[in-house]
Design a protein around this nucleic acid. Structure first.
Lengths: 207, 207
DNA sequence: GTCTATACGCCGATAGAC
DNA sequence: GTCTATCGGCGTATAGAC
C-alpha cells in the first residue's frame, strides 16, 4: 500500500496548503487529547496560525473539521480495500493485505490509526456511521463471508469471525499506540497475523 | 461473582441514597453520551434533582464524580480479581472466572462495562492510570505469567498473550455493548472463551 | 486573506435565602 | 438540605478594519 491518505499527505515534502495544515494539526490534537479537549485556538496554534478566524475561512465550524477528517480517512480506507480486493481473490491474501496496511499505518501515520481505533467518533460526530457499518468494513465483512463459502475460513458467524480477528489485530495495535507495547507495530506483525488468521482459518489444527 | 459493585448497587431494591443516585445517573449518562456531552444539569435531571446545587452538596466538582465512579469500578474489579485468585490456583480457572465476570457484567451492568471498555477515561481523568496499569490488570498479567511458568500457557511475551486474549474478549463484548452483535453477551460466552483460551494455552493443538 | 475586537451562550461553580 | 439567583470564564462564532 503506497497510496497516500487522500489529500492528507502523511510524509509529504511540500509544505501543506492551508486547509491541509489545519486538518493535520487537528488530526494530531484530536488523536492526542481528544476532540473536546482541543479548542480551535489549539488547532490554530498547532497550525502556525495567529488567530482562529483564519480557520473559519476554510471550515464552517469545528465539527466540520472532524467530519472532513473522518471522511478523508474512511474514504481512503475504502479505496484501499477496493484496491486489495482487486489484486487478489483469496480471502486469506486480502485479509493479510489489510493487516499489512493497518500495521504500516500504525507506524507511519499513528494519528490516523488513533483516530480509527481509539477515538469514539460517535461522541462528536453522532450522525456518522459506527466503524463496522462503514463501507470499508462492510467490504471486509464480505471478504470474510466469501472466505467461509470458499472453505478458507471456518463456518462460523461472520460477525464473530470479525470480532475475533480484529479483536486481536486492533487490540495489539491499540496497545502499541498507547505505548503499552514498547516496540514498533512492525515487530509484532508476523506473529499477530498468524494468531488472528489461525483463529478463523479452516485448515488450522485448532478446532 | 455475586459481589455487588461497591456502593453502586446494580440491582438493589432499596431506592439509592442521594450520592449513589447521582453516581448512577452520571454513570448511565457518561456511558451513553460520553463525559463531555453530559452536563451537570443532565445528571441532576436524570437523578430526579431539581437543581445542580444539590450535586455540589456531595461532590466538589464534575470531575470528582467521574473519579468516584472510576475508583469504585476499579476497586471492585480489583477485589473481584483477588477473590478469584484465592478460589483457584490454576491460571486457566482464574482467567475463566474473570471472563465469566466480564460477560456477566456486560449483560447485568452494561454501563459499568461501557465505562471500562468504551470510555477513554484519560480524556477526562488524565491523572488516572490507564487500564493496563490498574491494580486489577497488573494482577491479571501476573496470572498469565504464572500460567506460563506452570506450563499452562505458551511461552510468549505475557503482554502479547494479554493483548490477544483480551483482544478477543473485549472486542466481542464491545460489539455486544454497541449492538453490533445482536444477542446477549451470554450467548457468545462459551465459544469466545474457548477461542481466547486456546489461542494462548499450551496444550492446544494450535501451534 | 489575515488580524482585532467583540458578541453570545453554555456550563461549571458559588452565595445565600428559606 | 434543597432551591433561586447570579457570577465568571472559556470557547465558538461573527463583524469588520487593514
Amino acid at each position: 500500500m503506497d497510496q497516500e491518505i487522500d489529500t492528507l499527505q502523511i510524509s509529504s515534502e511540500t509544505p501543506a496548503e492551508m486547509p491541509d495544515k489545519i486538518l493535520l494539526a487537528a488530526l494530531k490534537l484530536f488523536a492526542e487529547k481528544g476532540y473536546f479537549n482541543t479548542s480551535l485556538s489549539d488547532i490554530a496554534h498547532a497550525a502556525d496560525i495567529k488567530t482562529i478566524s483564519t480557520i473559519y475561512q476554510h471550515f464552517n465550524n469545528k465539527q466540520t473539521i472532524a467530519l472532513t477528517l473522518y471522511n478523508s480517512i474512511f474514504d481512503n480506507l475504502d479505496a484501499s480495500v477496493d484496491d486489495i480486493r482487486r489484486k487478489s481473490e483469496k480471502s486469506s491474501e486480502q485479509l493479510r493485505a489489510i493487516v499489512d496496511l493497518f500495521f504500516k499505518l500504525t507506524d507511519d501515520a499513528p494519528n490516523i490509526m488513533q483516530f480509527l481505533l481509539l477515538l469514539k467518533t460517535s461522541e462528536f460526530l453522532p450522525e456518522q456511521k459506527p466503524l463496522l457499518e462503514t463501507p470499508a468494513f462492510v467490504k471486509i465483512l464480505k471478504i470474510i463471508q466469501t472466505g467461509i463459502k470458499a472453505g478458507e475460513i471456518r463456518n462460523i458467524d461472520p460477525m464473530i469471525a470479525m470480532a475475533y480477528f480484529f479483536g486481536i489485530i486492533n487490540n495489539t495495535l491499540s496497545m502499541v499506540l498507547n505505548g503499552e507495547l514498547d516496540k514498533k507495530a512492525d515487530a509484532y506483525q508476523a506473529q499477530t497475523w498468524l494468531a488472528a488468521w489461525n483463529l478463523i482459518a479452516k485448515k488450522s489444527a485448532c478446532f
